[in-house]
Design a binder for these strands. Structure first.
Lengths: 149, 149
DNA sequence: GTCTCAAACCGCATGCCATGCAGAAAACTG
DNA sequence: CAGTTTTCTGCATGGCATGCGGTTTGAGAC
């Protein structure tokens, strides 16, 4: 085993332990999916994970990969980088500002708060040419809080 | 005209002026789409804008709304709240950290930088129950910078 | 080890979001 | 107001995601 994979194998042990605690069954598909994600630096999409697993696990179903990632995310084992991935959301307000999104109803509201600003915009992060940044808070809005009571 | 709409009409005048400067033709469809977006606090999706316009402009095409928003965004007249809207991207790393996305190749990389942290997580933003937040930088990665030269 | 059952998997159907294309319509220029 | 170029439209297509029903399998009980 390569040295770089030791961390991944440790994460998988943790994952199995945590799955059992959560009452989730540990299947070969789930281990393969988690291994692929934990061993990747790519923040992969469902299809990317599916394609990689297919190489050594040709019978796995794409639907399973979708469901499994959804389950892992719901149980807090993994996270989604882009919570608002379902459809493009537009904004005519070009002033610098931030957003808060309700995880229940997907409503987005503006936040104007200078203390959030990261004014020291470092143009050299990882050799990127940085064009901008945004802060996205997630939470539960007042209406959805009320509905859940 | 309602008072609250005065701001919107001002924005439309600015929009028309800016469109001409950019060499974009000013059409009734474009004005309707921009008005809908500028008058909304919803950060609407393409379909939401389309449905609202349909009420008073029944012949407009959904395809036009898609293309037009795309054009406006490309020309810098409006912006997309969620740049990574095409597909869910997952992350097994549950430690607090931030991301930088390349606008060209959609690659996502991690950023660990405590100075970005917004530790004073105000649980009362707009009466939301705040669950978390993330900072997303956008830019052009090293490979894509090289390719564009 | 075997039994049992709920959970998970699979594959297909379906639906939404988004874009390519080509002909028709309309906006700007002179 | 005629010509040119952009824009609009409607349909076809494709990717991402999820609902559903039948089959398989993991995990606890015995």
């Amino acid at each position: 085993m390569k040295n770089s994979e030791l961390g991944t194998e440790n994460k998988i042990s943790q994952f199995i332990k945590r799955s059992k605690e959560l009452g989730l069954k540990v299947t070969p598909q789930r281990i393969a999916i988690y291994r692929e994600l934990a061993g990747s630096m790519q923040h992969p999409s469902t299809e990317m994970i599916y394609k990689n697993i297919k190489d050594y696990y040709p019978n796995i179903s794409l639907t399973t990969v979708y469901r499994t990632l959804e389950t892992f995310e719901r149980m807090g084992l993994i996270s989604v980088v882009n919570t608002l991935y379902h459809a493009a959301r537009y904004d005519a307000n070009m002033e610098p500002h931030h957003h808060v999104v309700c995880v229940k109803c997907k409503k987005i509201e503006d936040i104007y708060d200078d203390s959030i600003a990261y004014s020291e915009l470092d143009p050299q992060i990882d050799n990127y040419k940085i064009l901008g940044y945004s802060v996205l808070f997630s939470g539960i809005c007042e209406e959805c809080k009320t509905l859940n009571n």
